[in-house]
Simulated assay, not measured.
Amino acid sequence: MTRDEILKLESYLKKTFRMADIEVRQRPQKDDSAEVYIGDEFIGILFRDDEDPDDTAYQFQMAILDYDLQ
């Protein structure tokens, strides 16, 4: 993902979740995805889906482990 994409996605997530601590970071050696953090805690990955040249979409994937629910 480009730096411009990352900044736009970070701004979108901050507004959507009303959380200023969300940060989107580039992944080492990957250009189709970025990592999402709240503070120092990794929470998920954003993937870019650009198979359709007329429509780019982004998917956010977050795993919730059972011990996190306790």
Results as ranks from 00 to 15, higher is better:
Glu35Leu: 06
Lys8Trp: 10
Ile22His: 00
Tyr37Ile: 07
Lys15Ile: 09
Asp31Phe: 11
Arg27Asp: 08
Ile22Asp: 01
Thr16Met: 01
Phe17Thr: 09
Ser33Arg: 12
Ala20Cys: 05
Glu35Ala: 14
Ile43Ala: 05
Leu9Glu: 08
Lys30Gln: 13
Gly44Phe: 06
Arg25Met: 11
Leu13His: 01
Glu23Tyr: 03
Tyr12Ile: 12
Asp31Tyr: 06
Ile43Trp: 01
Ala20Asn: 15
Asp31Thr: 08
Ile22Gly: 00
Met19Glu: 11
Lys30Cys: 15
Glu41Ile: 08
Lys14Gly: 05
Glu10Met: 05
Phe42Ala: 04
Tyr37Ala: 03
Ala20Gln: 11
Val36Cys: 07
Phe17Cys: 10
Pro28Cys: 05
Asp32Ile: 00
Gly44Thr: 04
Phe42Met: 07
Asp31Cys: 01
Arg27Ala: 15
Val24Leu: 01
Ile45Thr: 13
Ile22Trp: 02
Asp40Ile: 04
Phe42Ile: 02
Ser33Glu: 07
Asp21Gln: 09
Lys30Trp: 06
Asp31Asn: 14
Lys14Glu: 09
Val24Tyr: 02
Tyr37Asp: 00
Val24Ala: 03
Glu10Asn: 08
Gly39Thr: 04
Ser11Lys: 11
Gly39Ile: 02
Met19Ser: 14
Ile45Tyr: 01
Gly39Tyr: 05
Lys30Pro: 09
Ile38Asp: 07
Glu35Thr: 15
Ile45Gly: 05
Phe17Gln: 07
Gln26Asn: 12
Lys30Arg: 15
Val36Ile: 06
Arg27His: 01
Tyr37Trp: 06
Leu13Asn: 05
Tyr37Glu: 05
Lys14Gln: 10
Phe17Lys: 13
Leu9Val: 10
Ser33Thr: 13
Gly44Tyr: 03
Glu10Gly: 08
Thr16Leu: 12
Ile43Pro: 01
Asp31Met: 10
Leu9Gly: 05
Glu23His: 08
Lys14Trp: 00
Ser11Trp: 14
Lys30Asn: 15
Met19Gln: 15
Asp21Asn: 13
Asp40Glu: 15
Ile43Met: 09
Ile43Cys: 02
Phe17Ile: 08
Ala34Tyr: 06
Asp40His: 11
Ala20Glu: 14
Glu23Trp: 00
Ile43Asn: 00
Gly39Met: 03
Gln29Asp: 13
Ala20Lys: 09
Arg25Pro: 09
Tyr37Pro: 01
Ile43Lys: 02
Lys14Pro: 00
Arg25Trp: 14
Pro28Gln: 13
Glu35Asn: 14
Asp32Leu: 07
Arg27Leu: 13
Val36Asp: 07
Leu9Tyr: 02
Ile38Ser: 12
Val24Phe: 01
Lys8Ser: 06
Met19Ala: 00
Lys30Thr: 02
Glu23Ser: 15
Val24Gly: 06
Ile45Lys: 03
Gly44His: 07
Ser33Trp: 10
Ser33Asp: 04
Arg25Phe: 08
Ile43Phe: 09
